[in-house]
Design a protein around this nucleic acid. Structure first.
Lengths: 340, 340
DNA sequence: CTGAAAGCGCTAACAA
DNA sequence: TTGTTAGCGCTTTCAG
């Protein structure tokens, strides 16, 4: 059905080796023969079978990416960076959505190992679970022994190449920003429990509070999710609990947007009644009203760097790239006068 | 380096055929032998080489997706739908970002053909260019003869499977919404010239105007792009031209958001001074202030349906799925009284 | 129920 | 400069 190299060889009246040489243009071939081969290729619409080639060369020119959900702008930006490098380096990218199921992540690594991908990039935070981390370590080792590698983008629970933003410092930075403006009752809508990113940002929150000598109030910490719904629902609970925060630090921008939506529904103005800050600086942050003060995480750059790590030689030593975050002040924070 | 089936066979003391049978569990194998094989597999961390398998079976279990840019929520939503079905059907998805370069799209199809993907899904609009369309037709044919297929998601310039929303009707619908509210000077920020989606939506705009007997004013149509910057820049020009529209219909939501940003900068209130409507109903639409009135395009559903078409048997006849769009009224449109 | 062997499509020695 | 040939790792007859 599909033309193969033998068909092309026959049509051009040459051997398959010659066809291969013309196509890979890494060997001298006479002009006349080259023309005939190229013509046969065109006539037959021939495209060399990448699997046969991968079988010989033991490399696929493909990189696998495992993430939670492409429609989340956090991952969308990371993937954009990855694709930029993929184009430059002429690689194919297989994207796998785990939908936050740790089991599926491991299954995907195995599928990607079967594909003999040049590397696997795992983006986003991970579940804080011993069994899961052990499985991950095991897979990382297997990838290495295949001449491939695991690159962690945004987390770093096992020894592997990694690109990590400083979540904790970023969180501390934005919470201190709030504290410096007089806020003391700062609520935190955190991500799902047992998530590394959740933990990192909670740590930053707690650290900032401590540095100002503010006692954390458990009632001010509510578990949400890294999406709009989660932020919304958490804010519903926060408001019902009557804890009256003067500011809310959401685990990420989407949750902050959800929080703002709920605040608005309840007639609370941002930032006049409640200040709100997010994390990540995804595109939506500057288009909500008021524009969201947040922490910029260089997502596309994380993607680019991950891809660069992924594409190094199999022998290259493990490397960890740490990226700075940056406070971006917009309009969702107001100063409050401190009461005694 | 990497363990292969022979290593497993040797370790389990059986033949490679038996290992294959255990792994594919489609043949009777005695329990004792199965145990030994499974154990060897585990010990060696063996994962069958997908390329060797693909070479035999001539199918890869992989679907290719070509789109403009993953970080654009339009594509993010489509891919989400695609991935949902990919998980259900246990397929891998290769995502290729063309960055709107038609040449790269064709190159990608060839790379995907080389991978013997089960199907190629091309998402988003296409360039209105004869040469390009011919190349596409050629590739579609080649895919067919490989037992694969081309699925078009959001466009339909060549005979192939397709999932298409009614862009023209949707555009007409939202512009009539504006007309019904008394607007007569309705600007249109359109997408890049020679883009099918641009054309479709302009057609709808013009059709709606005609149905109300309103003469289109060329000065009210400005070329932008399908992103925030494009909407912003187009609005700068629109405002400088002094054409004073009472409403703006942007080619998509991102452009609408850019338009709103510029309007705000110039002290123009939405919708009090100018009404704004978008297209697509991507997540950001409901989070801007005021929330954007727009046309909902069932993006995730388009992705799902595309994947369903993609996964049918090679013999299945070409099918075109048409999807309805829907006006979603939010807060960015105000009625105006008509002056004589 | 299990093994031997052919061959999928290609590339890379090795010859000529 | 070109052809011949031996596999890459796997599945699948065909025997046993």
């Amino acid at each position: 059905m599909t033309a193969n190299i033998t068909d092309v060889a026959r049509r051009a009246g040459v051997s398959t080796a010659t066809v291969s040489r013309v196509l890979n243009r890494n060997y001298p071939v006479s002009d006349g023969v080259r023309q005939r081969v190229l013509e046969a290729v065109r006539d037959l619409g021939y495209v060399a079978n990448a699997h046969a080639r991968a079988l010989l060369t033991a490399t696929s020119g493909t990189v696998g990416v495992i993430l939670h959900d492409v429609s989340d702008p956090y991952f969308g930006e990371i993937v954009r960076g990855i694709q930029e490098v993929a184009i430059e380096e002429d690689r194919l990218v297989v994207i796998c959505s785990s939908l936050r199921e740790p089991g599926r992540e491991i299954t995907y690594i195995e599928m990607l190992r079967a594909q003999r991908v040049d590397a696997v990039i795992m983006a986003g935070g991970h579940i804080l679970d011993d069994e899961y981390v052990m499985a991950l370590r095991e897979q990382s080792l297997q990838l290495r022994s295949q001449g491939s590698r695991l690159v962690l983008c945004g987390r770093h629970p096992v020894r592997a190449d990694a690109v990590v933003p400083d979540n904790t410092a970023g969180a501390a930075r934005v919470v201190r920003h709030l504290l410096a403006r007089g806020h003391r009752r700062i609520a935190h809508i955190c991500g799902p429990a047992n998530f590394s990113t959740t933990q990192d940002r909670v740590d930053g929150y707690l650290g900032a509070l401590a540095s100002y000598g503010v006692e954390p109030d458990p009632a001010l910490i509510v578990t949400g999710a890294f999406d709009r719904e989660g932020g919304y629902a958490a804010t519903v609970r926060l408001l019902e609990a009557g804890v009256e925060p003067t500011a809310i630090f959401a685990a990420n921008d989407l949750a902050a947007v959800g929080a703002m939506a709920r605040l608005r529904e309840r007639g609370l103005r941002v930032p006049d009644d409640v200040s709100v800050v997010g994390f990540d600086d995804v595109p939506v942050a500057r288009d909500v009203t008021p524009p969201l003060t947040t922490v910029r995480v260089p997502l596309a750059e994380m993607g680019r760097q991950s891809m660069r790590l992924a594409l190094r030689d199999a022998g290259a030593p493990t490397e960890v790239v740490r990226l700075e975050t940056e406070l971006v002040e917009r309009g969702s924070v107001r100063s409050v006068s401190q009461e005694p």
